[in-house]
Design a protein around this nucleic acid. Structure first.
Lengths: 149, 149
DNA sequence: ATCATTGCAAACCGTTTGCAGCCTT
DNA sequence: AAGGCTGCAAACGGTTTGCAATGAT
């Protein structure tokens, strides 16, 4: 089920980070939460679970997780969610970046990662049209999910 | 050249807003600036030009302009830029929303609106795949523009 | 034992609110 | 003349910084 927590922690370990209780707590929470969470929401949930982590530490841990591409930010809300490590979709592009294709339900706040067929073509077209060398792209969709409709 | 200022102000007027000096100043600045600007940058530029507008008013004016789809926000930076009123690209989708297709140069900060061929198909595919009713989409690309390369 | 990491306090910054006075209509 | 809009002051909330204490390696 939640191979995420194990995998995330081993990525950190492999990168020379220490496995600490606060980091475990945050990673475990992210592993079991499908919605995107704000730093404050993370703090509250951890407090409620009796697994207190200082606010500042949460910020630093999230920063660390983001740098290691273990979480990604939802641009429209600023909240974070774990990356889908299994089917990490690199869009067959530059490997220095990974994709951010989010689908956000405005009713329940649930966030999914989605596969976007033909993104490569879109990006190529935009590059040609503009003369830009494109390095990153963020696609974000919002609407109402099936449950909420 | 800058039909933007005139057009933006007349849109406001048509919607029952008053044409005030602060609004004119902000709109004029946006008309002649291709880069996206933060509220603070707007304040500074206006001050430097001897056209002071209070910080709070800038926030309120930007809010008003955004509601009337005269500016749009760059999600990755939070800055705002005038909408391209001429070739407003509504993606042949729901008219309640307009598109946000931004191309940001990470070197000079310049922001362009781009046309994304085939976005409709992409959106349709995502909708089918997920079961979401998609209402809005934000596409943002960043890289290096021709000048900066 | 060492040094990365945490927790606390306090500073910080951008943004928002309340309200009196101004200026467009 | 009326009320939308502005400007000031102050509050606000989320985020960041400095530093001593803790704890993983």
């Amino acid at each position: 089920m939640s191979g995420y927590a194990d995998e995330a922690l081993s990525v950190l370990k492999a990168h020379g980070y220490r496995i600490t209780k606060p980091r475990q707590r945050v990673v475990n929470l992210l592993a079991e939460t499908d919605n995107a969470l704000s730093p404050y929401e993370i703090k509250e949930k951890l407090d409620a679970a009796g697994a207190h982590v200082d606010t500042v530490s949460i910020y630093r841990i999230l920063e660390c997780l983001e740098e290691n591409q273990l979480i990604h930010r939802v641009l429209t809300t600023g909240k974070v969610r774990r990356c889908d490590l299994e089917q990490e979709d690199h869009c067959a592009l530059d490997q220095t970046d990974h994709c951010h294709h989010n689908l956000v339900c405005r009713a329940c706040g649930n966030v999914q990662e989605v596969h976007c067929p033909g993104v490569e073509n879109l990006i190529a077209a935009v590059a040609t049209q503009s003369g830009f060398r494109i390095e990153q792209h963020h696609l974000e969709f919002s609407g109402v999910c099936m449950k909420c409709a």
